[in-house]
Design a protein around this nucleic acid. Structure first.
Length: 311
DNA sequence: TTCCAGGACGACA
DNA sequence: TGTCGTCATGGA
């Protein structure tokens, strides 16, 4: 399908450079295909629109240097009015405010990171809602990615609404209200540890009881948001930083204790660093350490996917 | 069998 | 404040 044909639809222009496919497939090994999907060049996620859950589909239209998407709601192309209404959310979902050019310039002095920015040019990982992200990250604490994925799948299969789209099942992540009412014991048969189950339920209850305000994170600098999150049981520094990086796209939020970050630095820079040393090491990226971490993750993803793609 | 995974918490010195 | 044991499972 050509751009001309696609241009029948109202377009949402995005900041360049932006590689839609590269960016969306970023989380392919973790959360993708449960609450968000990437198939046939289309990104799908369930959103609440005018008070009801609908399947939002984003179709690529444009190029890396002139990027744009067009939207559909429940498989029907959005009207001009709907597109205008959806544009801010779409831009937020796609991390359109991330200043990639600024990042590339800031790390140009680091040959390794500079080569990554060339290899992954236009990568701007999609963001997911803070509550959904926080749960994903808590689930992912300490366990392997495949097992984390198993737990995530069981959680959404048990507690999320599902939508059949293009022959696939798409889940709408359960709200805090839904998970706050779940008994910790009910998650144990899903192979959640008691700690992990109580963290998830407890955080949901904190939101319902308005002790935890994830919306307030938007207006907090990262240095304030990290200790704010860490007040709550189940959220350590890694979880706070990972959530801020993933959900809010904080360029200065570096999950320095992350095994993936350490692994990527060991592979690319030849240095196996513990958390304190890694934080010092990361100062070379200035306040772009979170964005740099995303590029390290993205590079790791290409390494992990390569053998599977060849198989 | 041991160690490591996209850790956090609580006890203890 | 820093260290260590514990939780919990799967895979290499």
């Amino acid at each position: 399908m050509t751009i001309e044909q696609l241009s029948r639809h109202p377009l949402i222009a995005l900041a360049a450079p932006y590689d839609f496919a590269l960016s969306i497939s970023f989380w392919q090994l973790s959360t993708l295909e449960l609450c968000e999907q990437w198939a046939d060049g289309v990104y799908r996620r369930v959103i609440v629109h005018n008070g009801r859950p609908v399947v939002l589909s984003l179709h690529q239209a444009g190029t890396v240097d002139a990027p744009a998407v067009w939207a559909a709601l429940d498989q029907q192309p959005a009207t001009l009015e709907e597109t205008q209404q959806l544009a801010p959310l779409v831009r937020q979902l796609l991390g359109d405010d991330a200043d990639l050019a600024g990042f590339y310039e800031a790390v140009a002095h680091d040959p390794v990171m500079a080569s990554l920015t060339q290899l992954l040019r236009g990568t701007r990982p999609p963001r997911s809602p803070a509550w959904e992200t926080l749960c994903w990250v808590v689930i992912g604490q300490q366990i392997s990615l495949p097992f984390a994925r198993t737990l995530k799948t069981r959680l959404v299969q048990g507690y999320a609404d599902s939508f059949d789209v293009a022959g696939r099942t798409l889940f709408h992540f359960p709200s805090p209200e839904r998970l706050a009412s779940v008994a910790v014991e009910a998650l144990l048969p899903l192979q959640f540890s008691r700690n992990k189950a109580s963290f998830i339920v407890g955080l949901a209850q904190a939101i319902v009881e308005e002790r935890l305000d994830l919306l307030a994170l938007t207006d907090m600098p990262t240095a304030q948001a990290v200790p704010y999150l860490m007040q709550f049981r189940g959220i350590g520094r890694w979880t706070a930083e990972f959530t801020l990086m993933r959900a809010l796209g904080r360029r200065d939020a570096l999950p320095a204790n992350d095994a993936g970050v350490r692994q990527a630095i060991a592979a690319l820079y030849g240095q196996r660093l513990a958390e304190p040393e890694l934080r010092v090491f990361a100062q070379r990226w200035g306040d772009w350490q979170g964005t740099a971490a995303l590029y390290l993750f993205s590079w790791l993803k290409t390494q992990r996917l390569a053998p599977q793609a060849a198989a």
